[in-house]
């Protein structure tokens, strides 16, 4: 069965991130001049404007910054079988924030600052999504 939900379309800046996910690694950009770590991917460092950058692996640990519980599916035909689901902003230990789903617990169990860790789910042979699940405090 084909994958029915929206899929990322990697571009020249984001492809290393998605390649990393497929290999089970959560990658962030690090500026080779000032060391600033950033997400989502950009060409220039917002801290020092350098175009020098490398990809480094995140610890994969973070905490829930905010979250929602989607109960009304939009579009209905795509998400009717998915609700309720949790979308969260997770602040990684490296300081950057990433949007994701929290899985592995009831939606009602999600709390602010809850420690979470990355877990990867293959969507298609090309795309693997970084999701998060409850974790012991890192």
């Amino acid at each position: 069965m084909s994958y029915a939900k929206p899929l990322p379309v990697p571009d020249v800046e984001t492809r290393p991130f998605w390649d990393g996910c497929r290999e089970g690694k959560l990658l962030l950009q690090r500026c080779t001049d000032c060391g600033h770590k950033r997400f989502p991917p950009t060409h220039f460092c917002p801290n020092c404007r350098s175009a020098g950058q490398e990809w480094v692996e995140s610890s994969g640990h973070g905490r829930v910054f905010s979250w929602i519980v989607v109960r009304h599916p939009v579009p209905r035909d795509i998400y009717a079988g998915e609700v309720p689901y949790v979308v969260a902003l997770v602040t990684l230990d490296e300081g950057v924030r990433i949007a994701t789903n929290i899985i592995g617990c009831a939606p009602e169990a999600v709390t602010a600052d809850m420690p979470v860790r990355v877990t990867f789910r293959e969507a298609t042979p090309e795309i693997t999504l970084p999701l998060f699940e409850p974790a012991p405090a890192s």
Binding site: P6, V9, D11, N101, L129
Partner: peptide, 23 residues
């Protein structure tokens, strides 16, 4: 949310079912 190809910044939001303005 009909667009199943998430380009640009949307590739980091829509694939997690984070699509509408109420969301």
């Amino acid at each position: 949310g009909r667009d199943l190809s998430a380009h640009g910044i949307t590739q980091f939001t829509a694939p997690f079912g984070w699509i509408t303005y109420p969301q």
